[in-house]
């Protein structure tokens, strides 16, 4: 594959980038310490900060080869920083931010380039079609328009626009970066050089965690939700609509992706990546659409409703939860 330096800088996760760095014969400690590479280090910090703050990394202008070089070096450095923070949340957020950045650029590329990148991720794309097995691995099928049935498929191949192929590649990139970072052990040197940023991020993430853990009261869940949780936790295969109900509900009362994932981790076909992706899709964290919690009538037609006395007074699981919570909080005050 022949990518020029500018392309490598825009897509620093490609194999070609690794080769280029190798060819430059520059040692990691040089990039970490030599003042010449100060710009690369600053850009690395920027990458991580932007990922954390905005969920996407903005492009930097690339005017000459030096710009490209700094950009390319900043990518592995940013990864080392992220891995040093040792937060699953940050790894995920960063992986998604890099993937989104790539998508924004990729969708403007011509089809032969997109095809090449797709190939790097094991997807066979030719003439705007992709095999459905690859499609299913990366398509956000929670979204109606991405459901396989709403696609044009012939003889196993799904027709996609360049932009849509880029979207699948985004998911492939995200999952690749994330997996790599989970198994990365950065040298302790990183902690010295980027110590301030890393400590900062750690504090922020802890604060986030605490904020999240407060204020969820499991005992106040309506019976349908309690049943679903029980079923999922005991490893029963819960139908799609059940999972959907559960995720929308937990999200609505403020549970994080991590909290929700924990519940699903006992499911027999648990696939963390996939589940996380789906959760984040339903909760609008990656799709931009927050799906509403189904109302009681809907849950009833799905056969998931197991009402108790209080259920008679509500028509929506969230009302039940709020009602129960208020009651319990009032009684708590009385005791005190």
């Amino acid at each position: 594959m022949e990518f020029d330096l500018f392309k490598i800088a825009r897509y620093p996760f490609v194999e070609e980038a690794k080769k280029w760095v190798k060819n430059e014969k520059i040692e990691i400690h040089e990039v970490l310490n030599d003042p010449v590479y100060e710009r690369a280090r600053m850009r690395a910090v920027e990458r991580v900060k932007e990922a954390m703050k905005y969920g996407i990394i903005k492009d930097t202008p690339l005017l000459n080869e030096i710009d490209c070089m700094m950009e390319i070096f900043s990518y592995p450095l940013a990864r080392l920083i992220v891995a040093s923070v040792e937060s699953e949340y940050l790894i995920r957020r960063y992986a998604l931010a890099e993937a989104k950045k790539a998508y924004e650029n990729l969708k403007k590329e011509d089809s032969s380039f997109i095809q090449k990148i797709a190939m790097e991720f094991g997807m066979e794309v030719k003439d705007g079609v992709i095999h459905f097995s690859d499609y299913l691995k990366y398509a956000p099928t929670w979204d109606m328009k991405w459901k396989l049935i709403n696609r044009v498929m012939e003889k196993g191949y799904v027709k996609l626009s360049n932009e849509e192929i880029a979207r699948l590649i985004q998911e492939a990139i995200r999952s690749k970066i994330q997996n790599e970072l989970f198994y990365m052990f950065p040298p302790p040197e990183i902690n010295k050089i980027f110590g301030e940023l890393i400590a900062n991020l750690k504090n922020k993430l802890i604060a986030k965690e605490i904020k999240r853990a407060e204020g969820i009261s499991e005992k106040d869940y309506p019976p349908c939700i309690k049943n679903l949780i029980l079923a999922v936790k005991s490893g029963m295969n819960v139908p799609h609509v059940g999972r959907f109900t559960l995720v929308t509900f937990l999200n609505a009362i403020g549970a994080s992706t991590e909290d929700i994932l924990k519940i699903f981790s006992n499911s027999p076909d648990f696939n963390e990546e996939k589940t996380r992706y789906q959760i984040e899709h339903i909760t609008g964290r990656i799709s931009g659409t927050v799906y509403a919690v189904p109302k009681c009538a809907t849950i009833r037609t799905w056969g998931l409703c197991h009402p108790d006395e209080l259920c008679k007074r509500v028509n929506h699981p969230l009302f039940y939860y709020r009602l129960r919570r208020r009651k319990n909080e009032l009684s708590k005050e009385k005791v005190l």
């Binding site: 459905f132 097995s133 691995k137 459901k147 498929m153 696939n271």
Partner: peptide, 26 residues
């Protein structure tokens, strides 16, 4: 190519043949 498909991906195949989730606008 179907051997390593997970449950969610298989569900998409089932939805395809059973017509579930079809959107006429597409």
């Amino acid at each position: 190519r179907v051997l390593d498909l997970g449950s969610q991906e298989r569900r998409e195949i089932v939805d395809y043949v059973t017509g579930r989730g079809i959107d006429y606008n597409h």
